[in-house]
Amino acid sequence: RFRLSPAARNILEKHSLDASQGTATGPRGIFTKEDALKLVQLKQTGK
């Protein structure tokens, strides 16, 4: 289970993504908004 920032949680839910597909870069291993946006971008480019 990942620790998600509220913004990251919202983005992941909106795009039906799972945090385990990305890398948490925030302090103390928190999955940040920026991490979520990177994951969305990867999904949109098909990689």
Results as ranks from 00 to 15, higher is better:
Gly22Asp: 03
Leu42Gly: 11
Ala24Val: 05
Lys14Ile: 11
Ser5Ala: 09
Thr25Gln: 04
His15Pro: 03
Phe31Asp: 05
Val40Gly: 03
Ala24Pro: 10
Gly26Trp: 00
Arg1Glu: 10
Lys33Arg: 11
Leu42Thr: 10
Ala7Val: 09
Ser5Gly: 03
Ser5Val: 02
Lys38Asp: 03
Ala19Cys: 11
Thr23His: 08
Ala36Gly: 04
Glu13Val: 06
Leu17Arg: 00
Gln21Met: 13
Leu4Ile: 15
Ala7Gly: 14
Ala36Pro: 00
Thr32Ser: 04
Lys43Thr: 14
Glu13Thr: 05
Arg3Pro: 11
Phe31Val: 07
Phe2Cys: 02
Ala24Cys: 05
Phe2Gly: 03
Lys43Ile: 08
Ala8Phe: 02
Pro27Asn: 05
Lys33Glu: 14
Pro6Tyr: 11
Arg3Lys: 11
Ser16Thr: 12
Ala19Trp: 07
Gly22Asn: 02
Thr32His: 06
Glu13Phe: 02
Ser5Thr: 13
Ala7Arg: 10
Thr45Glu: 14
Ala19Phe: 03
Thr23Phe: 07
Gln21Leu: 13
Arg3Cys: 13
Asp18Ala: 03
Thr32Trp: 01
Ala24Thr: 05
Val40Tyr: 08
Arg3Met: 12
Arg28His: 10
Gln44Tyr: 13
Leu4Tyr: 12
Gly29Glu: 10
Arg3Asn: 15
Glu34Met: 03
Phe31Tyr: 07
Arg3His: 14
Leu39Asn: 14
Ala8Leu: 00
Thr23Glu: 14
Thr25Cys: 05
Leu37Lys: 12
Arg9Ser: 09
Leu17Cys: 09
Gly22Arg: 01
Ala36Asn: 05
Gly29Ile: 07
Thr45His: 11
Gly26Asp: 05
Gly26Ala: 03
Leu42Met: 12
Thr25Asp: 03
Leu12Val: 13
Glu13Ala: 09
Ala36Ile: 00
Gly22Val: 06
Leu37Asp: 14
Lys14Cys: 08
Glu34Asn: 01
Leu39Thr: 04
Leu42Pro: 07
Gly46Trp: 03
Glu34Gln: 14
Leu39Pro: 07
Gly26Phe: 02
His15Ala: 09
Ala8Gln: 03
Phe2Glu: 08
Pro6Lys: 14
Ala36Leu: 01
Lys38Thr: 02
Thr25Pro: 03
Thr32Gly: 04
Gln44Val: 12
Gln21Gly: 12
Leu42Asp: 15
Ile30Thr: 14
His15Lys: 06
Gly29Ser: 05
Lys38Arg: 14
Pro27Thr: 11
Thr45Met: 10
Thr32Pro: 04
Ile11Tyr: 08
Glu13Tyr: 02
Leu4Met: 13
Lys43Cys: 09
Phe2Trp: 00
Gly22Trp: 01
His15Asp: 09
Asp18Val: 02
Ile11Val: 08
Leu12Phe: 03
Arg9Trp: 02
Ala7Leu: 05
Asp35Arg: 01
Thr45Tyr: 08
Ala8His: 03
Val40Asp: 10
Leu12Asn: 08
Ser20Asp: 15
Asp35Pro: 04
Arg9Phe: 13
Gln41Asp: 12
Lys47Arg: 08
Leu37Ser: 09
Arg9Val: 10
Ala19Tyr: 10
Ala19Gly: 12
Gly26Glu: 03
Arg28Trp: 09
Asp35Ala: 02
Leu12Cys: 13
Gly22Ser: 02
Phe31His: 10
Ala8Trp: 00
Lys14Val: 10
Arg28Ser: 11
Ser5Leu: 01
Pro6Asn: 13
Lys47Ala: 15
Ala24Trp: 01
Ala36Arg: 01
Ile11His: 07
Lys43Met: 10
Leu37Thr: 13
Lys43Ser: 14
His15Cys: 02
Gln41Phe: 06
Leu12Ser: 07
Ile30Val: 09
Ile11Pro: 06
Leu17Ala: 04
Thr23Leu: 09
Lys38His: 11
Thr23Cys: 10
Ile30Met: 15
Asp18Cys: 07
Thr25Val: 05
Thr32Tyr: 00
Ala19Asn: 07
Ser5His: 01
Gly46Ser: 13
Lys33Ile: 14
Ile11Gln: 05
Gln44Asn: 07
Ser16Trp: 01
Ala7Ser: 13
Leu39Ala: 08
Arg1Thr: 00
Gly22Lys: 02
Thr25Arg: 03
Ser16His: 13
Ile11Glu: 04
Gln41Ser: 15
Gly26Val: 04
Gln44Ala: 13
Ser20Asn: 11
Ile30Arg: 06
Lys47Glu: 15
Gln44Met: 06
Ile30Gly: 09
Ile11Ala: 07
Gln44His: 11
Leu17Pro: 13
Leu12Gln: 10
Ala36Trp: 00
Lys38Glu: 07
Asn10Asp: 15
Gly26Leu: 04
Ile30Cys: 10
Arg9Lys: 15
Ser20Gln: 09
Arg3Glu: 03
Ser5Arg: 00
Arg3Gly: 07
Gly46Thr: 13
Ile11Ser: 05
Pro6Thr: 12
Arg28Lys: 14
Thr25Ile: 02
Asn10Ala: 14
Asn10Met: 13
Asn10Glu: 15
Asp18Thr: 09
Val40Met: 05
Gly29Gln: 06
Lys43Gln: 13
Leu12Ile: 12
Thr32Asp: 02
Phe31Glu: 12
Gln21Thr: 05
